[in-house]
Amino acid sequence: MEQRDADHDLMGRVALGDMRAYRELMGKHLNRSVKVAERMLGNRQDAEDVMQEACLKIWVEAPRWQPRAKFSTWLYRIVLNACLDRRRKNGTTTAHMAAAPADEDWADHIADDAPLAEDRLIEAQQAAQVQKALQDLPDRQRAAIVLSYYENMSNQDSADAMGIRLGAFQQLLFRAKQSLKTSLISETSL
């Protein structure tokens, strides 16, 4: 609740053009939001571009902002919409996030620490499989998983961030989990 009030205070100052408040607010939320964008888009470069657009939108729209919901919910909504726009513009990207370092990096990595090398390689492969399954999900299903699992947001907050009703979000999340499980099963059976 305090966090919410603090964000609202900062946003009130941002609305008056206070650059220091904007810096504080963005500094507070940038790390998490850029991760959401990275999970949504599958690569860091696009995520940074989208975050710049989203943050600029917050600055420009600040005087019109009404404190009806948490600031973070509004922020995620802007970030998610920007991600969806970016994917629509680029076509569905096939790039998958580098959850683990590239193969050549891994060779260096495992050479340093031989006893753990095999475990780490397996972990990296598993992470890559999960990441691929995640990226293959439809955009909205992926957004539901990202908000619910990675951001630990409540269903209501996630629904607000996605601009849908609670019931619709729960159905979306259920379908996303089913799709993810199916995808992981088919990956492992190959």
């Binding site: 904007y22 850029v34 600055w59």
Partner: peptide, 29 residues
Amino acid sequence: ALDACKIQDRDNAGLLDAVLFNAAATPQQ
């Protein structure tokens, strides 16, 4: 399984600078 898929924490100072620069160059609505 999802937890296995971590994103490394990175220094976002450069991104924050870019964000602030963009804002400084853009009037509010």
